[in-house]
Simulated scan of single mutants.
Amino acid sequence: MAGMATHLITGAGSGIGAAVARRLHERGDELVLVARDAGRAKEFAARYPGARTLVADLAEPDRISWALGHQTLPDRIDSLLHSAGIVDLGPVGELTPKTWRHQLNVNLIAPAELTRLFLPQLRVARGHVVFVNSGAGLNAHAEWGAYAASKHGLKALADSLRHEEHAAGVRVTSVYPGRTASPMQAKVHAQEGKEYDPERWIDPESVATTILTALDLPRDAEINDLTVRPGR
């Protein structure tokens, strides 16, 4: 992406999203960061000087359109980076509809809704949509049913979008990181009753590097699916 590109990012508060936001900010690109509330938006504005913020709660996808309708939206978006996500483990025999819905809302329906709302800008810019998926988007293990279902769904969303928007010049990339050292991973370990050692897992910076590679690829090519596994 030559010149100043504008990136709309969810999940910039921690993990992979934070690593990507910091790298793009350091190189002088424009950031539009989605924050769940005004307090979080103030944190983002302080952490990334010059970045714009939009307040929308991804846990309530039905309200995103209304929330954004009361804020000034960017005219141009070169990339939409979906890196927000939540995880709640549990066996199918114990997962409640509330737990299913919460993960589906944040991990799948909210990205679908944000994509719908910003597609006009993405088409104009011949932009790029990046979905930070998960190894669980390709394989579902015991106790990962609801999370994996949301991430399998995210793969379907990305694949459909890619076919639909290819003629408009919109690129679509899914990234499937293995376990990454992040607050989410610490929570997963707590739920699994295991000790958390960040050294064993992928550094979010390494995943950020793969995402920037996809974004910066010349227009003659598109990375569709990118699987990133722990190297140690």
Rank of each mutant, 00 (worst) to 15 (best):
A110Y: 07
H7I: 05
A84Y: 06
A51E: 03
G193V: 08
R116G: 02
L8V: 08
L89P: 01
A41I: 11
G178E: 06
A45Q: 13
W66Q: 12
E26L: 13
D225F: 03
H70M: 01
T10S: 15
G50T: 11
I223L: 15
K194N: 11
V124H: 15
A136Y: 13
Q191G: 05
A67G: 01
R36L: 03
E199S: 14
D220Q: 11
V188I: 15
L108N: 06
E192T: 09
D216A: 07
E165K: 05
L114G: 05
V129F: 04
A51F: 05
A46R: 15
R63C: 11
S134N: 13
L81P: 04
G169H: 03
D78Q: 01
G145N: 10
L73E: 01
Q191C: 07
G93L: 13
L114R: 09
I9Q: 12
N139G: 12
V34L: 15
H141G: 15
D57F: 10
A146T: 04
F44Y: 15
R162Q: 08
R36W: 02
T213Y: 07
T115E: 03
W66D: 14
A167F: 02
N105D: 14
N105E: 01
R162E: 02
K187D: 14
A5G: 02
G11D: 10
T72Y: 03
A59K: 04
R229K: 15
R76F: 01
Q103C: 02
K194R: 15
L122S: 01
W201G: 03
L89S: 00
A45K: 14
G15L: 07
V106P: 02
H166C: 07
A140P: 12
A38Y: 08
G153A: 09
W144P: 00
V32K: 05
D57W: 09
I211D: 02
H25F: 10
R36S: 06
L58C: 02
P74F: 12
N107K: 12
A181V: 07
L68P: 00
D75Y: 00
A67C: 05
S65E: 15
Y196S: 09
G50E: 12
E26R: 14
Y147V: 05
I86S: 03
A56K: 04
D75S: 10
S83L: 09
P183K: 08
G85H: 07
R116D: 04
R126Y: 02
A148C: 12
I9C: 14
T213W: 00
V172H: 01
L73A: 01
G231L: 13
L217V: 10
H166D: 09
L33T: 08
G3D: 10
A56G: 04
I109D: 04
L81K: 08
G93N: 11
W100T: 07
A67M: 00
T213R: 07
D88Q: 06
S160R: 03
V87H: 00
I211M: 06
M4G: 00
R63E: 15
L122G: 01
E113P: 03
